[in-house]
């Protein structure tokens, strides 16, 4: 019996974090029933998400008769039902398709093994093409097969699996702290926010004017959090004139981003200083 992976990717305009989490949960919840009802056996089902895409992976899929074409045909009925199921929650309209999603749907990728699974939804046709990282021009990525989807997206600087993104963020954060011999506070809420704001999170370290440390610690912390920055302290917990942030993309133009982050924080802190008179 031939078993191949099946992959469905729904590509959106940037989704709110809560929508990514709830849609992934819904896909994972509904997929087993729909696959089973279509006579498809599978080894496992997982759903992954970034701010730009939801990906459902059904591994080791086979049809009852063990034929590729039968499995692909069944998936062509299952996939649009799965996608449309996400349209039943809170959503917006952006064209006359009648679809309601949290943000506009812009692309469909569907593969069974190395063959495309063909269906249409909201005027879009599924295929094997998706987009890479926005910061690098959202270049066209043609995926060779479902089994290589994650690796091929990674080569396009997109880390689809949220667990991998989070693990990478934590690893790099620890390495950054060690390099600086300081402590970048690993605010869990901020880490979770960044998890669904970037497909390729890269740490950025910047400094700010020492005089602004005269502000109360809570004011500093609040200002940084609003800007999605992480405070930095020394080993004894004393605030330091540095901030850590994340960008979405490779480290070209890192200096621009460091300067921008610094100015954003300094402007915010100076406004708070001015209010205190």
């Amino acid at each position: 019996m031939v078993k191949r992976d099946a992959l469905l990717e729904l590509r959106f305009e940037n989704l709110p974090a809560a929508a990514v989490v709830s849609c992934c949960a819904r896909l994972k919840e509904l997929a087993p029933g729909l696959l089973g009802a279509a006579g498809l056996a599978y080894d496992g089902v997982e759903a992954f998400g970034t701010c730009k895409r939801l990906a459902l992976l059904a591994s080791g899929v086979s049809s009852a008769g063990g034929r590729d074409r039968a499995a692909a045909k069944s998936l062509a009925a299952v996939f649009p039902r799965l996608a449309a199921s996400l349209s039943s929650g809170p959503g917006m309209s952006w064209d006359d398709s009648g679809l309601l999603f949290p943000r506009p749907l812009r692309g469909l990728l569907a593969l069974y093994g190395d063959g495309p699974v063909a269906f249409s939804l909201g005027g879009l046709k599924s295929g094997r093409v998706t987009s890479g990282l926005d910061a690098l021009g959202a270049r066209r990525v043609s995926v060779t097969c479902a089994e290589k989807y994650f690796a091929e997206l990674a080569r396009a600087n997109v880390v689809v699996k949220q667990d991998e993104r989070l693990a990478s963020m934590r690893r790099e954060l620890a390495a950054l702290s060690k390099r600086m011999k300081l402590v970048v506070e690993p605010d869990e809420e901020l880490l979770q926010a960044h998890l669904y704001l970037a497909e390729c999170p890269v740490w950025v370290l910047s400094g700010f004017s020492q005089e602004l440390l005269s502000l109360p610690r809570e004011t500093l912390r609040r200002a940084m959090k609003e800007l999605l920055f992480f405070p930095v302290t020394d080993q004894k917990g004393a605030p330091q004139p540095y901030l850590a942030g994340l960008r979405d993309g490779v480290s070209r133009g890192q200096r621009n981003v460091e300067e921008g982050f610094r100015h954003a924080l300094e402007d915010s802190l100076r406004a708070r200083l001015a209010c205190r008179g």
Partner: peptide, 12 residues
């Protein structure tokens, strides 16, 4: 604007 040289975020 060269978007690869900057960080452009879409905050929902």
């Amino acid at each position: 604007l060269d978007l690869a040289e900057h960080d452009l975020r879409w905050i929902p």
